[in-house]
Amino acid sequence: MNKTSLNKIGLLIGLMAILISACGTQPTPVVPTDKVTIQLSWFHGVEYAGFYTAVEKGYYKEENIEIVLNPGGPEINPIDEVQNDKAQFGITSGDSLIIAKTNQQNFVSVATIFRKNPLTITSLKKDNIQRPEDLVGKTVGVYSLDLSNFFDLPFLALLNRTGLDRNSMNYALIEDFQGANEIKAGNMDAMSGMFATDQQVMAQDAGDELNFIYYNDYGYDVYINTIFVKEEFIQSNADLISRLIKATIKGYQYAIENPEEVAGFAVKYDPNLDLKYQQSVMKAQIPFISTGDAPIGSMDADVWETTQQILLDFDLIAAPIDLNTIYTNQFTSQ
Rank of each mutant, 00 (worst) to 15 (best):
I224G: 09
E81W: 06
V30P: 03
R131L: 14
N225I: 01
K138W: 06
F155V: 05
K138F: 08
Q88Y: 00
A255L: 04
A22C: 11
Q334H: 13
K268S: 13
G207L: 06
P132W: 15
P259I: 02
I256S: 01
T25R: 10
T37C: 03
V36G: 02
D146L: 04
N103P: 07
K125F: 09
K250Q: 15
E66K: 12
I326D: 04
G24T: 12
N84Y: 12
V281L: 08
N149L: 08
K57P: 02
Y215T: 02
E232T: 15
I91F: 01
K184D: 10
I20D: 08
A22S: 13
K276A: 14
K101Q: 14
C23P: 01
L156E: 01
T328K: 01
T325M: 10
N117D: 15
D146Q: 07
G251R: 06
Q279M: 08
F288D: 08
S96M: 12
T139W: 07
I18C: 06
I9P: 02
K246M: 04
L316T: 10
Y52F: 15
V201G: 01
F43M: 14
G163F: 06
K8D: 00
C23R: 14
G90W: 00
K3V: 15
E75N: 12
L15T: 07
G10D: 11
Y143V: 07
A54G: 15
D127T: 06
V46N: 03
N7C: 11
N170T: 13
V82D: 08
G186H: 08
Q309V: 06
P295Y: 08
T112S: 11
T139N: 05
A263I: 09
F331R: 02
R161I: 00
L275Q: 00
Y171D: 01
A17L: 15
C23H: 09
G58E: 10
I241C: 05
E257F: 02
G251Q: 06
S192E: 00
L164Y: 02
I286G: 03
T25L: 14
Q130W: 05
R243S: 12
I296E: 06
G14S: 01
E81L: 06
P320V: 12
L40G: 05
Q334R: 12
T37S: 14
L323K: 09
Q309A: 06
F89P: 02
D313T: 14
N187P: 02
P295S: 07
V46S: 01
D274V: 13
S168H: 07
L12F: 15
K35A: 03
E209R: 10
Q308N: 10
P78W: 03
P259L: 03
D270H: 00
V108A: 08
T197H: 05
L6T: 02
